[in-house]
């Protein structure tokens, strides 16, 4: 059933890190269309680093990377970027624009929608993430969780095939975090969107993740891959079992 065409993301023997500094050795995984794929690991283990490779901000140190069905090369850059949306760990909203303007920006730059349609769409997106009443605030006036939600709305504006979320629920209250999980599942069901998510929240992982990979900072490597249930019940690696048992990384 699963064909190569369904593999939206392929990482093959990737060394992740920065020039002269390898953070993760020999990472391989694939993400299929419509999957919610979660990257786990203690802080500083290289989750954000791996994500920056996937979204093309930094070149991989070794290995091969395919995203949205295309090899990550300079020539394919625009095509790949057109198919992905990114929420950064800090939100990375444009500080000189209001929340609404942040969401409007991609619509202005890349769609032919009329002014009113753009604004309607932006407000609807903000409504989806529960920020309908904060549209006119400046990013500086938002809490950390609100910034992240606004950033998710911005990342969704162009209806990307793949949405990358770096710790979306860190700093959110349980209710909002739960609503966010529902939103992710809903988008996957309705739009067939694929998600690559960095998160630590165990309940959320069990609720949304189809598959996860786990990195270990001490070993500089990917130490497990599978569904959260499999990893909890039958992973041989102590480190991984402990994480799922205790809900945290020591």
């Amino acid at each position: 059933m699963a064909s190569a065409e369904d593999d939206l993301i392929i990482a093959e023997h990737v060394d992740a890190g920065y020039p002269g500094k390898t953070i993760l050795h020999d990472v391989s995984f694939t993400v299929k269309r419509g999957e919610v794929f979660v990257m786990l690991g203690g802080s500083g283990c290289g989750k954000s680093t791996m994500m920056k490779h996937l979204i093309g901000l930094n070149p991989v140190l070794a290995g091969r990377l395919v995203v949205a069905g295309r090899e990550w090369t300079w020539a394919n850059r625009r095509e790949i970027l057109a198919k992905i949306g990114v929420m950064y760990q800090s939100g990375a909203l444009f500080g000189s624009m209001s929340v609404l303007e942040n969401v409007l920006l991609p619509l202005e730059e890349f769609t032919k929608l009329k002014r009113k349609e753009r604004e309607e769409k932006a407000r609807r997106l903000l409504g989806l993430v529960g920020l309908a009443d904060s549209a006119d605030l400046m990013p500086g006036d938002l809490s950390g969780g609100m910034k992240k939600r606004a950033a998710i709305a911005r990342a969704m504006a162009l209806e990307p095939e793949i949405l990358f979320l770096d710790e979306p629920s860190a700093g959110l209250d349980p209710l909002t975090s739960n609503a966010l999980d529902d939103l992710i599942l809903d988008l996957r069901k309705r739009e067939g969107m694929t998600f690559v998510i960095v998160t630590h929240e165990l309940p959320s992982i069990f609720k949304i993740a189809d598959r996860c990979v786990m990195f270990d900072r001490a070993r500089h490597a990917m130490v497990a891959e599978g569904s959260p249930q499999d990893l909890r019940d039958s992973c041989e690696d102590m480190f991984v079992r402990e994480f799922f048992a205790r809900g945290e990384v020591k």
């Binding site: 057109a82 990114v86 950064y88 800090s90 990375a92 444009f94 500080g95 920006l105 730059e109």
Partner: peptide, 17 residues
């Protein structure tokens, strides 16, 4: 510089801008 530190430049880049 502030935008660089806040990852806003990265955000522009991945938004194809």
């Amino acid at each position: 510089g502030t935008m660089t530190v806040n990852e806003e430049l990265d955000a522009l880049t991945t938004m194809n801008l």
